[in-house]
Design a protein around this nucleic acid. Structure first.
Lengths: 239, 239
DNA sequence: CGTGCCTTTGAGCCCACTCAATCCCAGTGG
DNA sequence: CCACTGGGATTGAGTGGGCTCAAAGGCACG
């Protein structure tokens, strides 16, 4: 990836990332201390309970945050998308597994110096608080999905979130139909939705049969009518 | 409540609250600006979408944070217990309903001046970040309960959390059996667990029948064997 | 042309839901 | 003192959505 040598000046995620509020001087400091890492799909970035000696922003790709019961049941508790932040000041031990779902590129900072920076740079500390509050809202919104929605509504909710991000990245044209390349296997989606992979597969088939989505292969989804998808998802998603 | 005139010096929640890191001068400022409010059980403190012109710490009682679908399905996304904080800097509009489950006493601060204080007082800002990170972990832990646990495990998980807090408040003696006075109706528990009230009631009966708990009336629970309860809850609760 | 992973589809079962009746208990008023 | 009321809790009977177990299909890779 040529991006490894990219400088902060041309960074695609800057506007939403931890450094969004930083001024030129602060950006310069970050530019100097950052380094990149990439992970292939399926690779674990950290295991829950392990030490995490860096903090990072997701630059590209998708990673999952997940938790396991001893008998193997697994729940994904968050999706890490570009600009999302990994790591917490004062807490070097990871609470959840972090796994690359697709090829993931991280913009990393060594823990110690970055913790000092958080303490000394108000722009970083307050952006971190802001991002954490957003994550908390997202987690709480997802609790409604997990606790109260049917399998069909769950699938539609996930598609709606992914489609919304895809449409934003595709730019304002907001063209007719939205296309998504699913970065998740049926099993990974099931783990995020609190379902089994068979149920996920069946609901995809049902949504296709009912004309809500079109499938090209298992992973490429086209949504002709976003309003319809929104209705299928039920309300409660603050997007 | 005589507590209305209490000063910060004798506050029971100080050590865990938003003001935990403050020095004497900072405490003096807070002492001057705080005021108390109380709410009877069942009363709504804020409705989602409404303006919330104060921020507050829960001093005593239990409040719920919840979200509704248009058809009436409801999910409680958080329990507010003593020392928990209400309100977010820069976000005067409430995202969730906040409802008093039992008699609730709040220690309030007017929004504007408190926002300034957060920005200017590092001790408050960093404590808020710390508390928000804890809430995020709690929310994510609860996602595992909602998405992957059986009804019986869900009930045991809730009891475990309430019992742990009760045991802490009861002090170190850590005596034989732990007693809880449930501040929630069967329906409120169902809304927190993603179940129906009938299922909650049935699982209480089953746990009593199997000797895991003893019931005195519907709301008073005794737990003889915490280890047993912990096993019933399954793992995944970082308590 | 295997091999392995992911996905789809089928058949049957079970846990939690729905609908409904009853119980309990505190409060209120005759 | 009792009757009545109403909210909460319990229990029963029956249903169904999502799970389990199982088989087969698609597709990329060596």
């Amino acid at each position: 990836m040529a991006r490894t040598f990219e400088s902060c000046a041309s960074c695609a995620i800057h506007a939403q990332a931890i450094c969004a509020l930083c001024d030129a001087d602060e950006m310069h400091v970050l530019d100097e201390m950052k380094y990149f890492r990439s992970y292939p799909p399926g690779q674990t970035i950290v295991f829950a309970g392990d030490r995490l000696d860096f903090m990072a922003s997701v630059v590209s790709g998708l990673a999952t945050l997940s938790q396991d019961l001893h008998d193997g049941r697994r729940q994904t508790v968050g999706l890490l998308q570009p600009s999302d932040f990994i790591g917490r000041p004062g807490r070097p031990i990871a609470r959840y597994d972090i796994t690359a779902a697709s090829e993931v590129l991280l913009c990393c900072f060594a823990r110690r110096p970055f913790e000092k920076l958080i303490a000394s740079t108000a722009h970083i500390g307050s952006r971190l608080l802001e991002m954490t509050l957003d994550e908390l809202d997202a987690a709480r919104d997802w609790m409604l999905v997990l606790g109260r929605k049917s399998a069909r509504e769950k699938i539609a909710s996930l598609l709606l979130i992914l489609a919304t991000r895809a449409a934003q990245n595709a730019g304002p044209p907001f063209s007719a139909d939205v296309q998504i390349d699913l970065p998740l296997t049926r099993e990974a989606m099931a783990d995020h939705l609190g379902l089994t992979l068979e149920t996920v597969s069946r609901q995809f088939s049902a949504l296709r049969h009912d004309g809500v989505i079109t499938l090209a292969g298992a992973r490429h989804v086209t949504i002709a009518d976003m309003a319809r998808l929104r209705r299928e998802a039920g309300d409660g998603l603050h997007i």
